[in-house]
Write a protein that binds this DNA or RNA. Structure first.
Length: 463
RNA sequence: UCCCCAGUAGCUCAAUUGGCAGAGCGGGUGACUGUUAAUCACUAGGUUCGCGGUUCAAGUCCGUGCUGGGGAGCCA
């Protein structure tokens, strides 16, 4: 008999004889002579209820059919006699596929804390919340590809292992085949690649290669940062999306970032409505409002200099106390408290801050004519903070070389990056978006460890 | 890495001034002819995170380590 997925069974328009449901038992309710078994197979949020009468094949296993057990049920899909569900399965036969000992199975049919579920990350996708999360994650990845494909962007596989220490986005994990337990110095030229190697911290430089050949491109892959960050917003391994567009300035870049976020939110609300609703109802009561704002409100475009003016003007609360712990002045990098004030309190919607002082931004960002700022931009959203960071890239060879020298960076390491400016250089722009931060934004989940299957953070490499 | 808070039954938590370690849920057993986090009855279940100290007496106070959470920095 061919298997029917729960999602298909529940969306039936008419009864159907002889179907097979395979899945895991969420809960069992027994009466005299019969039992209700609710089964979930991960295809959707809802369970399907099976009615199992005493005496049918497999009934002798019922005592061992408990929460967590894997079962296969043959039966007829019929309209439910009870309230609370339209369809149910009237079982004809039951098979216990995989038992789950009730004394030791950690998941109970009740709410568990996120912290506890994190300690059993191998079982947490079997809960409603994490099942919904990982279905949304899957759909979100698809939506990313669809968005770019619809606009004729090409998907570039940037390398995971890099020999370039000029990616310049943070501490790197070293990649080696050397045995650290061996004594004595082991030089890099005897290592696998014959030079120092590391896991990528950004696909941007590779994306620039392809932006200046295929035109509009994006990368979407794992990214690694060996920062000792202990926050709910950072992971050592995360997924990042990095579009890069030729013939595009900072304003086109901001336009794309805004369209991109709006499109993803719209897609997920349409295609994951049931799973999204779980988060709106149980995780974040303001989620609907937040998502409405992202979808419908124009994002604020705010030059850094004006952002500083707003912050200075509002440095005192109505009661006259200092609003900010860190004093505001032109030239500082915006603190988390400043970003949150702008997006959560002052504008109450997404804000794109751009044209930052060049002293606080990366060497490759395009210098503006004022001589003080660069064409960088950060997209700030309520609760998550910085979800996107990007810039127009410096395409002028002499200006880029001067900046590299000014900062004392090893110019020879950047030979191929400079070649892109040497031969047919064009204005181009791009940004990076943390995929997990997108998921936090659209679900209201406040800890990055709860939006990724197996979170990697300092001193945590379980699962 | 820095600052703050917490750690008690499988889970979520309570325990007065330092004075007999408890509840709900979950588990087990039984009852119940349509349940919906089923209900009802009975029942088992503890190195109070580890180590050291103060005290007649420590879940409670002190020191230290570990683990978890929050905030900051770094950023996506």
């Amino acid at each position: 008999m061919k298997r029917t997925k729960v999602k298909a069974a529940l969306s039936a328009t008419q009864p159907k004889e002889d179907i097979q449901i395979n899945g895991w038992v969420r809960t069992k309710r027994e009466g005299k002579g019969f039992a209700f078994v609710e089964i979930n197979d991960g295809s959707c949020l809802m369970n399907i209820q099976a009615v199992v009468d005493e005496g049918l094949p497999g009934w002798e296993d019922m005592p061992r059919v408990g929460t967590g057990a894997a079962v296969s049920i043959d039966g007829d899909l019929v309209e439910s006699l009870g309230k609370g569900q339209k369809w149910e399965v009237r079982a004809k036969a039951l098979r216990l596929i995989g038992e789950a000992d009730q004394e030791t199975y950690p998941l109970q049919k009740k709410r568990h804390s996120d912290e506890f579920l994190r300690s059993i990350a191998h079982l947490r996708p079997r809960t409603n919340k994490f099942g919904a999360m990982f279905r949304i994650r899957s759909e979100a990845a698809f939506a990313v590809h669809q968005f770019f494909r619809d606009q004729d962007y090409r998907y570039v596989h940037s390398p995971i292992i890099t020999g370039s220490d000029c990616e310049g986005a943070g501490e790197m994990f070293r990649v080696t085949t050397h045995d650290p337990s061996l004594a004595g110095a082991q030089s890099y030229d005897q290592d696998f690649f014959g030079k120092e190697a590391a896991l990528t911290v950004s696909g941007q430089l590779t994306a620039e290669i392809f932006a200046t050949s295929l035109g509009d491109v994006y990368t979407f892959g794992p990214t690694f940062r060996a920062e000792n960050s202990n926050t709910p917003r950072h992971a050592a391994e995360f997924w990042m999306i990095e579009p890069e567009m030729s013939f595009c300035d900072i304003h086109g870049n901001m336009d794309l970032a805004e369209q991109f976020l709006k499109s993803l939110v719209r897609h997920l609300r349409k295609h994951c409505a049931e799973d999204m609703e779980l988060f709106a109802q149980w995780v974040d009561k303001t989620l609907t409002q937040t998502l409405d704002s992202i979808e419908n409100d124009a994002f604020v475009r705010l030059p850094y200099t004006e952002a500083i003016e707003i912050l200075l003007k509002n440095a005192k609360t109505k009661k006259g106390a200092d609003r900010f712990e860190f004093p505001v002045e032109w030239g500082i990098d915006l603190q988390t408290e400043h970003e949150r004030y702008l997006t959560e309190q002052h504008f109450k919607k997404p804000v794109i801050v751009y044209d930052y002082p060049k002293g606080i931004k990366a060497f490759y960002m395009r210098q503006n004519d004022d001589g003080k700022t660069v064409a960088a931009m950060d997209v700030l959203v309520p609760r998550v903070g910085e979800i996107i960071g990007g810039s127009q890239r410096e395409e002028r060879l002499d200006v880029l070389q001067a900046r590299i020298r000014e900062l004392g960076l090893p110019e020879e390491e950047y030979w191929w990056y400079l070649d892109l400016r040497r031969f047919g250089s064009v204005p181009h722009s791009g940004f990076g978006m943390g995929f997990e931060r997108l998921l936090m934004l659209v679900t209201g989940v406040t800890n990055i460890r709860d939006v990724i299957p197996c979170p990697r953070t300092p001193r945590h490499l379980e699962f």
